[in-house]
């Protein structure tokens, strides 16, 4: 062995992979800059309000006083023991169910009838769809006038059937149906357009196959059209239900929740508590409840859609 040992080989400098190349870093910064305005606004005006509402729901506050008084779960206790709250909740659910079911039935029939080459099809569609975009406040005012008991237009159509004039707006039994009628009127066009799009997506080969097998139109509907339309029906049921739960404009103008809260609904009740009576804490509890209901529906939707819907 020679005395002179070879100088130890210097280990190669370990190759360190830069976690981010220059490019990637630049891209990340650009990404952040581009999405910053959206995320800032979403955070402040959409996400943060959930937590702030939860916080406020534990306090008694009138929105003006500098101090909020902590009262724990008192707002929730008051809410669940308040008969008006239960009435309002009941109204909201009844209204949503009626609106969704009737709207779906009418709009599906219209879509089925319309789903062919038809003269004037786009004209019919344009008119029936128009309430989707027309200002709800203005529309609600015409309806108030149409439902007027003495000179209202609706009386003209009820008279041949011998129906006595109804004071829709001021009657405790008819104010909620009045609201339901107007909301259905507003919403048919949207559902119809979505159904038409759904029908267009059904492959025509299936109908050809049905023709070969000699199905009659009723079988055709129940074995081909309806099952293949189920994603659309499901989508419209859920979105329709959620938007009915949130209805405000039409009701605020048409009946303002009256008489005696018989046509009052959750969002209007929330508005009254928050901005008329300044019961901020209580209104926040209501807002949170609405949030929980809608989240629950959305989650249930995700689970059920896998089971019910044929894609």
């Amino acid at each position: 062995m020679s005395s002179q040992s070879r100088p130890p080989i210097e280990p190669l400098p370990k190759f360190k992979r830069n976690p981010m190349t220059r490019r990637a870093k630049r891209d990340a910064i650009t990404f952040a800059l581009f999405t910053f305005p959206n995320f800032l606004l979403l955070t402040v005006f959409v996400f943060w309000p959930i937590f702030y509402s939860l916080f406020l729901s534990f306090f008694k506050w009138d929105m003006i006083a500098p101090k909020k008084r902590f009262i724990g779960l008192e707002n929730y206790r008051v809410m669940f023991s308040d008969p008006v709250f239960w009435l309002v909740t009941k109204n909201t659910l009844i209204l949503s169910l009626w609106v969704v079911v009737v709207k779906l039935a009418i709009s599906l029939s219209l879509a089925l009838v319309m789903n062919r080459d038809l003269r004037g099809r786009s004209f019919y569609q344009a008119i029936i769809f128009s309430p989707t975009f027309t200002t709800s406040v203005a529309v609600a005012m015409v309806w108030r006038w149409i439902l007027e008991p003495d000179y209202g237009l609706l009386r003209v159509f009820m008279r041949p059937f011998g129906i006595a004039p109804i004071n829709w707006i001021e009657s405790t039994t008819h104010s909620l149906p009045a609201v339901i009628i107007v909301l259905i009127w507003v919403g048919i066009g949207y559902d119809m357009v979505i159904f038409l799009a759904g029908l267009k997506n059904i492959p025509p080969e299936l109908y050809d196959a049905g023709l070969v097998d000699g199905v009659n139109p009723v079988q055709e509907f129940f074995y081909i059209t309806f099952p293949l339309l189920s994603p659309t029906t499901f989508f419209l049921t859920i979105t329709g239900f959620i938007s009915a739960l949130k209805s405000f404009d039409i009701i605020r103008i048409l009946t303002d929740g009256g008489p005696l809260n018989t046509s009052n609904v959750l969002v209007l009740f929330l508005y009254e508590n928050a901005f008329r009576w300044f019961k901020t804490g209580y209104a926040s509890a209501l807002a949170l409840l609405l949030f929980v209901i809608i989240m629950a529906i959305t989650l249930v939707q995700n689970r059920l859609s896998k089971r019910w819907v044929h894609y």
């Binding site: 309000p49 949030f291 809608i294």
Partner: peptide, 9 residues
């Protein structure tokens, strides 16, 4: 998230 929850905040 329903926008109504954000009215008060």
């Amino acid at each position: 998230i329903p926008s109504q929850i954000a009215l008060i905040p």
